[in-house]
Design a protein around this nucleic acid. Structure first.
Lengths: 343, 343
DNA sequence: AATAGTTTTGCAAACGTTTTCATAAAATCG
DNA sequence: CGATTTTATGAAAACGTTTGCAAAACTATT
């Protein structure tokens, strides 16, 4: 009759049921080699009978790790971040960590809020997307003594250790690819770059290459559009309804590229015969689509994996040298870009 | 000099710094109206100076809610689940909950493990995808006294309250749509249905409609394929390389449908002129693709939102009647299915 | 200026664990 | 078989909070 009627048994209920002391139950969990097999068995039976589940909150206040890692992303609902989150989750799971996830919708104020909440929960480690964060956030992180890591972007001068790709370089590669194919009239489609260092870096990288071109890119060929296929289709359709058209469009990411392709189709332009389109990212599906999207491959899964593993090792003190990891990127030439000749 | 050198100040450090008792600091947080404004100010200053962050673990062991909700999904890295997670997250955020997320890769054993981990963390509520869970999992959930909810599937006899769509009905609608368009030779592409009640229900729904057709569907027109565009493209290409072809293909979800469309393209078949293809789900991008995908719309965002809100209300006791919510679904006819005449 | 009422604060117990230290029991040894 | 070592267990303090209760400090009332 020592069973509690309601669901939640605690360690003292278990101790009572197994007729041992609380300490012994605790030890059975944390240092099983110190308790006699027979006793262990009794405890095990009691645990099973009562449906006891350890309370990590109670452990945590002893300075024991909470076993959680906080991950803040701009949004979960993008192929690319979903992939990173999945890979990150898979990477920390073997270390026994549970993942806290929050999204801030590209609002760095909300990101700060999410970080605070995570810290209240005493996460053992923190992971953020990108290098662009409020001073407040950086401050907050630095005051804690838990490891933190930036994912997705690489910069050798980053404040936090980072695992990612050099987005400026990605922009350069995309632009260079078009230029190498002979394109001189190149349009650009980018998402808003405020609070989004990835997009900004890519755009700057692309611009720096395009700056060497004989003709400057006219304003009308540079469009900014929200990150959605529908919006991009809309915006690019407008761009393509002008008299003078570019021979190629460089898109800030693959989603925009897909939108651009649909826009071209709608305008009666064939890709790549009439217009070339290059994306950045190599999202899931970009390879399989028809025509296969030419893009700059950013290895999302690898990045997430490496980041998760690195952070887990930092937390568990398996490793301590904080380092920056740059993942290789390169153009994957598929079917949406063609060579042009003459000017 | 009362500042701790290392980052982590606790409530007693704050109390000391503000020259008040611990209780007063605690009260300043939990019942601010009970503490004099001037005192509140002193405390606030101390908090700021020390960078104090409340420890939810310590609160939690008082029976105070942990402020977390656990969500287990098969995988994060699918358009559809990413959308649900995002919507769910957005819905619980205003209630102050932090989200714990785990994925089990369609392995119900791992799902059980994730649930246990969540319970160790003393989540205030639990959300699962689908109705298919191990007896152990259901058992575990029922022994706790926290609310739990099933997302994505609707079934009026479900063990847990659920918010979702009737997947069997979705399968029926898709099949009915094809039949109504005059199709009699209908192929089917489905993912593995083990541990996946959504897919199973859809398939059964479709089958039940197809069973009324004069000709039985030949084995070769029923293909099972992993949930990826590439694999589906492969598998459907094989199906379409046979002598006798169906006039339409019903796909278990939109990703498979996209793979099927690409396969058709590769086989030189025009969609919908030579073959009609219908998906289920209406994933992001399905509307915008060319040709626009005909599919059965499952309102992922709505489902996630309703589920999050419902669970949050259950946890905060704003609501207590556990109920089942069925979200309306219907065919959105776009461009990948055409009417056929004759037999 | 004393009393009663109200507002503000502090003390100490409680929450569910882990862990140190001490002690009891068992095993080993001469 | 008693002394000594080893192994197994228990008692109690500690972790960082919240909260019921009681005391202290004000305010208002006479």
């Amino acid at each position: 009759m020592a069973d509690k009627n309601n669901g939640n048994a605690d360690i003292v209920a278990v101790a009572k049921a197994a007729k041992v002391s609380i300490s012994t139950v605790s030890r059975a969990y944390n240092h099983p080699e110190l308790v006699k097999p027979a006793t262990r068995k009794k405890i095990d039976a009691a645990v099973r009978r009562l449906g006891y589940i350890r309370n990590r909150a109670a452990q945590t206040i002893h300075g024991i790790r909470s076993g959680t890692i906080g991950l803040v992303v701009p949004t979960i609902d993008h192929a690319i971040f979903a992939e990173v989150i999945q890979a990150f989750s898979d990477a920390v799971e073997p270390y026994g960590f549970t993942l806290l996830v929050a999204s801030h919708g590209y609002d760095l104020e909300r990101e700060y809020g999410a970080l605070r909440k995570f810290l209240e929960h005493r996460v053992d480690g923190l992971a953020l997307i990108g290098l662009d964060h409020s001073a407040e956030s950086y401050n907050l992180i630095q005051r804690q003594d838990i490891p933190a890591i930036s994912i997705w972007n690489y910069d050798k001068t980053s404040i936090l250790p980072c695992v990612g790709a050099d987005n400026r370089h990605a922009g350069e590669l995309a632009a260079r690819h078009l230029v190498d194919l002979g394109h001189r009239d190149i349009g650009m489609v980018f998402p808003p770059t405020r609070d989004n260092d990835r997009a900004r870096d890519r755009q700057q990288g692309a611009m720096s290459v395009l700056a060497d071109l004989p003709r400057a890119t006219p304003k009308e060929w540079i469009v900014e559009t929200p990150y959605s296929i529908a919006d991009t289709k809309e915006a690019v359709t407008r761009m393509l309804s002008q008299p003078a058209l570019p021979t190629a469009i460089l898109c800030g990411n693959d989603v925009l590229a897909v939108g651009a392709i649909y826009a071209a189709m709608r305008c009666g332009l064939r890709v790549p015969d009439d217009i070339s389109i290059i994306g950045i990212g190599d999202f899931k599906g970009s390879r399989e689509m028809e025509p296969g999207l030419t893009t700059v491959r950013l290895p999302a899964r690898t990045i997430g994996e490496l980041a998760g593993k690195e952070l887990a090792r930092l937390v568990t003190k398996e490793s301590s040298e904080i380092q920056r990891t740059s993942c290789d990127i390169s153009v994957v030439a598929r079917k949406t870009c063609r060579r042009v000749t003459g000017v």
